[in-house]
Design a protein around this nucleic acid. Sequence first.
DNA 1: CTTATAGTTGACCAAAACAGTTGGTTATTG
DNA 2: CAATAACCAACTGTTTTGGTCAACTATAAG
Lengths: 157, 157
Amino acid sequence: MRLTTKGRYAVTAMLDLALHGNEGPVSLADISGRQDISLSYLEQLFAKLRRNELVTSVRGPGGGYCLSRDLGDIYVAQIVDAVNEAVDATGCGGTSTCQQGEVCLTHHLWCDLSDQIHGFLSQISLANLVERREVQQVSARQDARVGDTTTLVLSQA
Amino acid sequence: MRLTTKGRYAVTAMLDLALHGNEGPVSLADISGRQDISLSYLEQLFAKLRRNELVTSVRGPGGGYCLSRDLGDIYVAQIVDAVNEAVDATGCGGTSTCQQGEVCLTHHLWCDLSDQIHGFLSQISLANLVERREVQQVSARQDARVGDTTTLVLSQA
DNA sequence: CTTATAGTTGACCAAAACAGTTGGTTATTG
DNA sequence: CAATAACCAACTGTTTTGGTCAACTATAAG
């Protein structure tokens, strides 16, 4: 499994979208400002997220991105998968041809691990993250830092 | 967490050592032949494994590498750690300075994931792997392919 | 003592992935 | 039409990956 800043950026951006997307589309410029991620890099990531139908886009002034479905129906694993396009730990990509057409010594081990990681990240939805206290705290700090107008108040939730 | 071929190679090589190391040291050339891993790459990996005290080396003719301790006391997580030297998924390395000196939105998520992966790989020892039926089968196939003289017969275990 | 073996070290290299930039174009709203 | 913001493609610099090569040192067998 590949876990680099790429996947982290994608999940962070999607979480930002979840936190601020309750009133219409959110522009990448806003996300870029709040999360310190390069705008053009975000564009690349969101192209993949859109292709994987995790977000929808609205063009023109006032446009931006929206989550394609409910907070509770988008899982971290899907986001990481979307930007990385290869999320398995086996090396042969599950084809069992690791060593000259046959499985290698540790093939099953990596299969198990893949299942483990994927299972873990598949259980965490954006809704789960939004509910977390630490996420709310960090989000509040960020909104205070940037002059924010469209904040979702979550502390009562 | 970084999980690349590097860690896979290391675990595979260590498992090979576990399977063939019952009678004296095993040369890297042997491992290279059986596991299809470049000899010079193995040298690099074993330098790190040795620095992390997972193996000991014997120089001179008939020399090679031995496991530094019992099969049951070497865990996959330690091997991956040894060659990757940074096994965490956070990006800030656990220092919580992901975003301008503060934790980023998804910091806790990556901490949890790190714990998850590490916990999983920390429970699997070389002894566990050696006991697995698939490992024994693959090993037998490899020994048949290469003209092998020092095979440990494990099928009775 | 010589010699072959095998570990040890470090320099070097090509390809890929990552992170980001530049410079556009299209579509939409006012 | 002008401003906005998504969309797109090409390109750049850096790091990691996976690997080679050459030189050197320690050791054991003969």
